[in-house]
C-alpha cells in the first residue's frame, strides 16, 4: 500500500517523488532530480482550457465519474440502511442469526469489511485514473 510499491504506476508529474519521497527522519539531504520544476513553473506553460476540452481529459473525468458516483451512492445507502433498519425494523434486526449474535451486530460489523472492500476497489480503479492523468499531461507538453 506504500506509495513506492509497484501497484501504482510511476507518477507522471515531475515531482521529487522517487528520490526525495522520504520523510526527513535522517539528516541526509537529498537532491531533487535535475528536471525538477516548481509548481508555478509547471503550471505556467499549461493551456488549461485546451486541456479541459481535450478528449483525453474528458475520458478521464468520465471514467472517474463512472466509478466514484456509484461507489458513493452504494456506501451511503449501505451505511444508512443500518440505522434505518435498526430503528424501524427492530424485530428483524434483533433476530439471533449466529449463536448469540444478532443481525444488527453482524450488519454493523459488515460495514467495516464493506468500507475496506470499496477502498480496495477504488485503489484498483485509481491506478487506471493515474495512467489516464499521465496521458493528459504528456499530451499537454507535446
Amino acid at each position: 500500500m506504500d506509495s513506492g510499491s509497484s501497484k501504482f504506476p510511476r507518477d507522471p508529474t515531475p515531482i521529487v517523488g522517487s528520490s526525495t519521497d522520504v520523510s526527513p527522519l535522517t539528516s541526509r539531504t537529498l537532491k531533487p532530480p535535475h528536471d525538477e520544476r516548481t509548481a508555478d513553473e509547471q503550471a505556467a506553460g499549461a493551456d488549461w482550457n485546451a486541456l479541459a476540452a481535450s478528449p483525453r481529459f474528458r475520458e478521464l473525468l468520465k471514467a472517474k465519474r463512472r466509478f466514484i458516483v456509484p461507489a458513493v451512492v452504494f456506501f451511503v445507502v449501505y451505511y444508512f440502511a443500518l440505522p434505518v433498519l435498526v430503528g424501524y425494523a427492530p424485530a428483524l434486526m434483533t433476530k439471533r442469526v449466529l449463536g448469540p449474535v444478532n443481525l444488527a451486530y453482524l450488519f454493523a460489523l459488515s460495514q467495516f469489511f464493506m468500507a475496506w472492500l470499496v477502498a480496495a476497489l477504488y485503489v484498483r480503479a485509481a491506478a487506471k485514473f493515474d495512467r489516464m492523468a499521465r496521458d493528459v499531461i504528456s499530451g499537454a507538453s507535446e
Binding site: I15, G17, T20, P32, A43, L51, L61
Partner: peptide
C-alpha cells in the same frame, strides 16, 4: 473552472515536496 478541474484531476501544477 477548467483550470481547477484539470489541476484537481491530474495533479498538474500541484505543490511539490521541498527540501529542508
Amino acid at each position: 473552472f477548467a483550470e481547477l478541474s484539470v489541476r484537481a484531476n491530474t495533479g498538474l501544477g500541484a505543490e511539490k515536496a521541498t527540501l529542508h
